[in-house]
């Protein structure tokens, strides 16, 4: 297990390294590096001095090593807009995004799993058919549009829930969170639901397919032949088997959820790093862009690692392989 974990972490480090090359090439070769590091307002003379100071006259590989060296120490440059280290700005916004994404994932399981179970166990029931038809919309509708409709319905017309912002927050261990206050929860509800919609469709389809497949297995019949209660068969024998693909999808979906929070945060003016990156792109605050991209890459790699880990814990067959 330990060697396996070490190997996986080494692989993860390699991926991150590869992505730094991509991001570096992206911003420094395709884009204009001078624009990235130096404020567009600077005079020609200042620019020239900065180019030399920042080493843009150096060969590319040396520039990359400098960039990498700085990145490792957490120095990605200073945001023009906030006049703070870009990484700090991103990290300040990270909790809001994570709170939104985690809430969305929880919703996707809380809603997707029961609906999927229903559609799986009663495939011909009208409700199940409606659920399956609805899930197609969850896949194909652009999420910003759904977000607008949610605001229009629940905020503008019904007036039940607020449309923008994070509401009242509480500080827990120095991190501001919304979900502990009623006002915060109200603010969280619509964006979380909006962000969850795609994952809900995903989870419920996967659950349904898993249930359909598992129900035909001999071990379910054998479990019935043992005289087990239906509840135990559904919640232990069926659920434990379909949980493995669902954990994978939900886990990997976390990265996608964080990425798509860009859209939801813009619609609901949620002060997370997704809204930050859009603003940064619009004002060309490129250190922020670089910091955001690196943050996302690290997040993705960590998530992949965690998903693999959970996977091996859930499926005994895989656990054995990794031990050997």
């Amino acid at each position: 297990m330990a060697t396996w974990l070490l190997r996986r972490m080494f692989q993860a480090a390699l991926v991150i390294l590869a992505m730094t090359v991509l991001v570096f090439v992206g911003v420094n070769v395709i884009g204009n590096p001078v624009d990235i590091m130096i404020s567009p307002d600077a005079t020609q003379e200042v620019r020239q001095r900065a180019i030399e100071a920042l080493g843009f006259d150096q060969p590319l590989w040396r520039q990359y090593l400098t960039f990498l060296g700085n990145a490792v120490t957490g120095d990605i440059g200073k945001s023009y807009v906030f006049n703070q280290p870009a990484l700090d700005v991103i990290l300040q916004r990270l909790p809001a995004t994570l709170e939104l994404a985690v809430s969305a994932l929880l919703l996707s399981i809380l809603i997707g799993l029961p609906l999927g179970l229903l559609a799986g166990f009663r495939p011909d029931h009208p409700t199940s058919r409606a659920i399956m038809a609805g899930s197609i919309f969850g896949f194909s509708l652009p999420s910003f549009w759904v977000g607008l409709m949610l605001i229009m319905t629940f905020s503008v017309y019904l007036g039940w829930l607020p449309s923008i912002g994070r509401g009242q927050t509480v500080s827990v261990l120095g991190i501001e969170v919304s979900f502990l206050t009623l006002d915060g929860l109200k603010h969280l509800a619509l964006p979380a639901l909006n962000l969850a919609l795609y994952q809900i469709s995903m989870v419920l389809r996967l659950t349904r397919a898993g249930v359909r497949e598992t129900l035909h297995q001999d071990f379910i019949k054998f479990a019935r032949a043992k005289g087990l209660r239906p509840r135990r068969i559904v919640f232990v024998h069926v659920l434990k088997n379909i949980l493995i693909p669902i954990v994978t999808v939900v886990g990997l979906g976390f990265g996608h959820t964080v990425a798509f929070s860009v859209v939801t945060e813009t619609v609901f003016a949620w002060p997370g790093m997704g809204k930050l990156i859009i603003d940064a792109i619009n004002v060309l605050d490129r250190p922020i862009i670089v910091a955001y991209l690196m943050m996302i890459v690290v997040l993705f790699v960590v998530i992949n690692l965690l998903v693999d880990l959970t996977y091996t814990l859930l499926d005994p067959r895989i656990r054995l392989e990794t031990q050997e």
């Binding site: 001999d218 071990f219 005289g227 209660r229 024998h237 493995i244």
Partner: peptide, 24 residues
């Protein structure tokens, strides 16, 4: 029937590779 199954009437299946739940 549930109370009888496995209790008064038991069953053994054809393929032992498939009858036990692989994740329990």
């Amino acid at each position: 029937m549930r109370q009888l199954r496995g209790n008064r009437i038991a069953m053994i299946f054809q393929d032992p590779m498939m009858t036990l739940n692989p994740v329990l």
